[in-house]
Every structure is written in C-alpha cells, then in structure tokens.
Simulated scan of single mutants.
Amino acid sequence: MDFLLEPFAAGFTQRGLIAGLLVATMCGTVGVWVVLRSLAFMGDALAHGVIPGIAVAALMGVDLTIGAAIAAALTIGGVSFVSSRARLPEDTGTGLLFAGMLSLGVAIISRSGSFAVDVTAFLFGDVLGVTSADLVLQGVAATIAVLASVLGYRAFLVLSFDERKAQLLGLRPALARAVLLALIGLVVVTAFRTVGSLLVFGLLVAPAATATLLVRRVPTIMVVSTVLGWAAVVIGLELSYHLDLAGSAAMSGTSVALFFLVLTGREITDRVRTGRAAPAS
C-alpha cells in the first residue's frame, strides 16, 4: 500500500491526481461522441489548432486559456466555413485548418525565444504544476460536459448514426453538431494545462474506443470510458513517479496501451471460442 500511495503524499501530486480525474471525466464523456460520430480527426485538429492561440497569449501576457479558447473557436469556424462555402468534405476543411494552425503556432514559437522553456509545458502538459484555480476551471468544464451530454443525449445519439433521421425528427442536427464541436473545444481548452494540447487526444479517444470493445449501450460505454480514463490517470501517475516519466505522457500512453491490451484479449478470446466451436460443429 505504501508503494501505491507514496506518489500522492504531497499536495501538488494530489492536485495533479484530481486534475487528471476531472480531465478523464470530460474526455470519457465527450470522447464517446467523438468515436461514434467519427470526429477523431476533428479532435486532433483542435488539439493542434489551439497552439497559436496559446503562443500569442503567452507573448502578450494574457491568460493562456483565453488564447486557447479563441484559437479553438477560429478552428471550428474555419472548418465550418470551408466545408459550407467551398463545398468540400468536412475532413478536407479539417485537414486544411489542422496544417494551417499548426504551422502558424510553430512559426510563432520559432520566432519568439522568450518563452521557449514554457513550450514543453503547454504542448505536453504539466500535471504536477496544476493550481487550485485550474482545478476549479476543470471542475466547471467537467460539469458542463456531463450535463450537456445528458441533456443532448437523444440529439447526439441520432446524429451519430443518421443525420437525415435527426432532421426528420426535428432534433436540429446543425445545432447539435455545433454543440458537440463546442464540447470538444471545451475539453481541449481546459485540459491542456494538465495533459498538454498534443497529448489530450489520447485521453479523448482511447478510453471511449476501448469501452466500445467491451460494452454496447451508449450510456454504459460512457461509464466504462470514464472509469478507464480514471484508471489511465492513476496508473500513469504511478508510472510517472516510480519510473521518473513525464506525467502527461504516462497518462495518455497508458490509455492507449489499455486499448491494445483489451483488443488483444478480445482477439484471443474470440479465437479460443472459435476453436472450441469448430470440433462441435
């Protein structure tokens, strides 16, 4: 027990644990819609799209969250504009904004050496540097994400499988899609201090994808996804402490490792069942 509890003895590691659990709650809930709606590429684009906003905010001495929020809004607006006006598939607009915003962020960083030390922190997170104010912000964001998923459950569910049916049912798919994109942006913007703008994608997609391998009903997928995210946070912080690894990378990497572990276990189980069924038939 001492071996397991030792990493969380200090106050700053306890704050890191709470922050990680809050981020996992947001990602575990919103990530289910990302997986079901096939918005993984959009989530990745937003994770990279906030970089120039964070860089500009750092240069101006403004709160980094404000810069990230503005950049996320510009990315979402740009994707919608390109998709509607240029009549191109949504993934084309997403790819264009992905490359453009990432290039802009790298250009700003490369021209400004004054905050080069901080670049690693906002790209890859600093889970042990989380403050009480960050916890409040993430707590509010997690509450919004869960409530929005519950209140918009029917619209999000129908939209994930049949957008035309959502229109016929009067569920306003355009509004539902806008809210869903806003939720993804909320997760990215409020989680970058904990897991970084680049590594948040692992917690956003991997637990939800893993949950779909284990259960079928969407509410159950959300619960399992959240629990898997919590497990990834705890295991990741344990590995970070005992192996001297970056906390954010350990949490994100653990969530991905859990996916492949479950996938491998499922494949082995299916082959065993098939092997047993063959002689009987």
Rank of each mutant, 00 (worst) to 15 (best):
I76T: 14
L64R: 13
F41W: 06
G31E: 07
T29P: 00
P52L: 08
L88V: 15
T65K: 11
M101W: 03
H48Y: 09
V50H: 04
A72Y: 06
P89Y: 02
I70Y: 03
L88E: 13
V32D: 03
A69R: 05
D91G: 01
L74P: 07
R37W: 00
A73M: 11
L59H: 12
G61C: 05
I66S: 12
T92A: 15
I70C: 08
L96W: 10
I70F: 13
F98W: 10
F41Q: 05
G93Q: 11
V30E: 12
A47T: 09
T65A: 14
S80W: 11
L39A: 11
L64A: 14
A58P: 04
L39G: 08
V56A: 14
V35K: 00
A71W: 04
G100A: 15
V30A: 10
M42E: 11
T92F: 12
F41K: 02
W33M: 06
V50I: 15
V35C: 01
P89K: 04
L39F: 02
T75A: 14
L39K: 00
G49V: 06
I51N: 07
T29H: 00
L97Q: 09
A71G: 07
I66Y: 11
P89I: 07
G43A: 10
G49Y: 05
L74S: 06
R85W: 04
T65F: 12
G67T: 11
A55G: 08
G53I: 02
I76Y: 07
F81I: 12
G78H: 01
W33R: 00
G43S: 08
A68I: 09
T29L: 11
G77P: 00
L59Y: 12
V35I: 10
T75E: 07
A40P: 09
A99F: 13
A40Q: 10
A73F: 08
G95S: 13
P89R: 07
A71V: 05
I51W: 03
A68C: 06
L88I: 14
M60N: 02
L88T: 15
S84G: 01
G61N: 09
F98H: 03
L97C: 07
D91Y: 01
R37M: 08
G95Y: 04
M60Y: 10
T29Y: 01
W33Q: 06
A68K: 07
S80Y: 14
F81A: 15
D63C: 00
G43W: 02
M101F: 14
G61M: 09
L59W: 13
W33V: 10
F41R: 02
A57G: 13
S83R: 15
M42L: 14
W33H: 03
D91F: 02
G31C: 06
E90P: 00
A45W: 07
R37N: 10
T75L: 13
M42V: 15
M101D: 01
G53T: 05
I54A: 05
L46W: 01
T92V: 15
A71F: 03
T92D: 10
L97I: 14
L46I: 11
M60D: 03
V56E: 02
G43Y: 02
S80R: 14
I66M: 10
G95C: 11
G43D: 08
G95H: 08
S84A: 14
I51E: 07
A45D: 10
G49Q: 09
D63F: 01
I54M: 10
P52C: 06
G78D: 03
